[in-house]
Design a protein around this nucleic acid. Sequence first.
DNA 1: GCTGAAAAGTCCTATAT
DNA 2: ATATAGGACTTTTCAGC
Lengths: 147, 147
Amino acid sequence: MKIDEINWKILQMLQENARVALKDLAKEVGLSSPTVAERIQKMEDAGVIESYNTKVNLDKLGYSLGVYITIKIRFGQTQRFEEFILTVPEISECHKLTGRDCMLLRGVVRDPKHLEELNVRLAVYGELTTSLILNSVMDGKIYCEHF
Amino acid sequence: MKIDEINWKILQMLQENARVALKDLAKEVGLSSPTVAERIQKMEDAGVIESYNTKVNLDKLGYSLGVYITIKIRFGQTQRFEEFILTVPEISECHKLTGRDCMLLRGVVRDPKHLEELNVRLAVYGELTTSLILNSVMDGKIYCEHF
DNA sequence: GCTGAAAAGTCCTATAT
DNA sequence: ATATAGGACTTTTCAGC
């Protein structure tokens, strides 16, 4: 799919605020609303626009510790682990990586005790290495041009 | 901030689709549109709703390799690194973690050559360990209840 | 804190270039 | 492929409960 400068601008604005009005997008890029709507529709159909999400601040809801956990899955447990991890509410990301500790998890917990409890649940499937997020310098940047 | 069952439902629907119409939210939770609008406004003001984002599929735009990179920052380079990393278009997340290799980066590149080129730019600031994302089992799950 | 109705604003569809 | 305009729909405002 070809993304011209206008579509990059539209993508940039949608990334900044998914609820922006068509009319404002249209004004910004210098096209009419129907045209912008059509361009967005095409990007959705092509899968370039995957979804419109709302970022919830879990810290404000009492989940103040962010964690990354690597797990070296025990032999033969991979499939069972992948099914299990989908059901764990504390975990929001699970990536299979190259390297020794092949699974990387991102999660959120209320406090150290909650983390310990989460670790126990996960440890069934393999050896864990847990790191706390001390500070997120950047989290979910906007892509607005080719690089 | 107190999040009752209705607000959780609203948050859940907004996380699934940030562009959902107020009218549909209202119908789903059994309240009028103005009430739902007011509840959303309050959650925005309280910082519980942080932002409305659009997820762009970078794979479809030619950036087919996702990577996690840990970097052990050279002594004294932390601040310079944190300023630098904000300007690197390939990197979308940067977290300071507990543990030995204190910075975790998430990025996206076109191909191995592009990755090599990115690594060279980053290696100025410390020792790198790069892992490719082979498969994302889960990426950005929806939180829809207390746990 | 919620509702309902009216006003304001936005979006969609059809038509035209 | 884009623009314009009218009608349809959605959101917001506000008086009242």
